[in-house]
């Protein structure tokens, strides 16, 4: 009896400690970002948030092009991926819940989420970029191939499995009684999907979207490879741009000046804050959407 009491207490302590570590790590990351970007925070002030010039030679640092690049690519990717990931979740969660085909598809979507991002980058570079170049030639815009849209498409493919696998699970969890009740009232399958399944699963689906958005905001490697890395505010969706994560990856290694390094770390801080804000908004939206209300 004594033993079980001990292990119970031990387990509880372990849980507390691990929870505490997560909290400590998050606070630690935030604190070290603030400490190391303090010089930029002090010297550049608000200018960092409103200036669109990034010129390391003269020590002018403004994050606007990167913030715009990050938000533009992430939300475009989300918009592109949403129809596909919703369709996949409905297909696997409602229409074909069992069977060999469903198993294979399930496995494939899960596999997609496990592929390292550099592989997506290569795929983008070797397959998507030449394709985009052809499209751009046909549309009579400069045939860079790389750019905001290319990066968004790569991101879209990368985030599909996150939305779709969570969507699939929550759609499976929709109570059978609800669906049967709707059928008994004479609803067609589409009406059941539209009026019963999606409304009752929407908070879960929103959680999946949020997770994908987080992934898209922070994605570095694949984006850096196909976005064109130009430190200007993109003028069109075909133009090259840069994201916060990719500018960090690009310029961190050779940043000799203290202010320069500090500014790059401040971009990291900004990315952290933006991700936190978007997550917070997402949680509020999820609460609003939740079915129990």
């Amino acid at each position: 009896m004594m033993l079980s009491f001990n292990s119970d207490r031990l387990f509880k302590t372990a849980m507390f400690v691990s929870g505490g570590i997560v909290l400590a790590v998050v606070i630690g990351i935030l604190a070290s970002l603030i400490v190391h970007s303090s010089q930029a925070l002090r010297e550049l002030g608000l200018g960092f948030l409103v200036s669109s010039t990034w010129n390391p030679v003269v020590g002018k640092f403004g994050a606007v092009p990167f913030v715009i690049g990050t938000l533009l690519t992430s939300f475009t990717a989300l918009a592109v991926s949403l129809p596909f990931s919703l369709a996949i979740s409905l297909f696997l969660g409602e229409y074909f819940r069992e069977g060999r085909l469903s198993k294979v598809l399930n496995y494939m979507t899960d596999l997609l989420s496990g592929i390292p991002s550099v592989i997506f980058g290569f795929w983008g570079l070797l397959f998507l970029v030449p394709l985009m170049r052809k499209a751009e030639l046909a549309l009579n815009v400069p045939p860079y191939g790389v750019g905001i849209l290319t990066a968004s498409l790569v991101l879209a493919v990368m985030i599909i499995p996150f939305t779709s696998s969570i969507g699939r699970e929550v759609i499976r969890l929709v109570p059978q009684d609800l669906k049967e009740a709707a059928y008994s009232l004479g609803a067609t399958r589409f009406e059941v999907v539209k009026n019963v399944i999606i409304p009752s699963a929407r908070s879960g689906i929103a959680a999946g979207i949020l997770l994908s958005l987080g992934r898209a905001l922070g994605e570095t490697m694949a984006v850096t490879m196909v976005i064109g890395n130009s430190n200007f505010i993109p003028r069109s969706i075909f133009a090259p741009g840069n994201t916060m994560a990719s500018v960090i990856a690009n310029e961190f290694t050779e940043a000799t000046e203290n202010l320069y390094l500090s500014s790059i770390i401040e971009i990291g801080l900004l990315l952290f804050v933006i991700t936190a804000v978007i997550n917070y908004l997402g949680v509020i939206i999820m609460k609003k959407l939740s079915f129990e209300k």
């Binding site: 010039t53 990034w54 030679v57 890395n229 130009s230 430190n231 840069n242 000799t256």
Partner: peptide, 14 residues
């Protein structure tokens, strides 16, 4: 002159 510049035009490759 510098290791990173504010390029007037162009695309960046890593």
């Amino acid at each position: 002159r510098g290791k990173s510049l504010n390029w007037p035009v162009g695309l960046g490759g890593k």
